[in-house]
Design a protein around this nucleic acid. Structure first.
Lengths: 109, 109
DNA sequence: TTACTATATGAGTATATAGTCATATAACCC
DNA sequence: GGGTTATATGACTATATACTCATATAGTAA
């Protein structure tokens, strides 16, 4: 059975994972690979309301994925842990496997 | 701006990430590291209703994370892409960073 | 056949999350 | 000071998700 310590760990891990479990947030993380950006530029890139983007950014900061600092009027967001990018390599591998499976299925038809 | 192709990719990636963005599902994936298991044993391990566990498992199969096969009355679930484990290394690194930050804060107090 | 077990799923409820709009705050420029 | 801009947040609605209970299905064993 799951002990309380492990359960707590999985809760914390789930918080982090949830923070990137959204297409918009994934787009943001990918955008920030190329360098830090303000809310307004991110909002333009992902084509969504600034207020909405601001909320998504807060969630990712709370999860420890992003960092922010104020610069004049703007708030600049950065990737805090570049390891989050390795994360997407894993996800891409899952997707690649899915496509291979579809191809197998197609061949068998 | 995000083009349609990238948007589609991020949608697919989000599907996979969502499939592990839950403490119970993370517990299941960790349990399956040590080998395949049936629904009943998984349900006992995570201490949840079988019907609930069964649904969580279906989601992860749909996302391409798990595989299943029938064996008598039981349905056995396996990790399909072991790369999903690397995934958790990244998450753990984010958590470790968070703890380091807390320590820094504490020292500064 | 009947009884039993493991799993899946429909229907319902409760909760969480995303998105929008209006408004507040903070920093800037005049 | 007043006006403007960037960001954050409260309040709301719409939607998605998790969970439970009851039931259906498929296999097993008598």
């Amino acid at each position: 059975m799951l002990d309380a310590k492990k359960q707590l760990l999985f809760d914390r891990q789930a918080e982090v994972v949830k923070a990137v479990a959204h297409p918009l947030r994934i787009a943001i993380v990918n955008y920030l690979r190329d360098g830090e950006q303000c809310v307004c530029d991110i909002a333009e890139y992902v084509d969504s309301e600034r207020s909405n983007v601001s909320r998504h950014l807060s969630v990712m900061v709370a999860a420890g994925i992003l960092e922010s600092r104020k610069e004049g009027l703007k708030v600049i967001y950065t990737l805090k842990t570049p390891c989050i990018l390795k994360f997407f390599e894993c996800i891409t591998e899952v997707l690649r496997q899915q496509i291979e499976d579809s191809e197998e299925l197609l061949k068998a038809m």
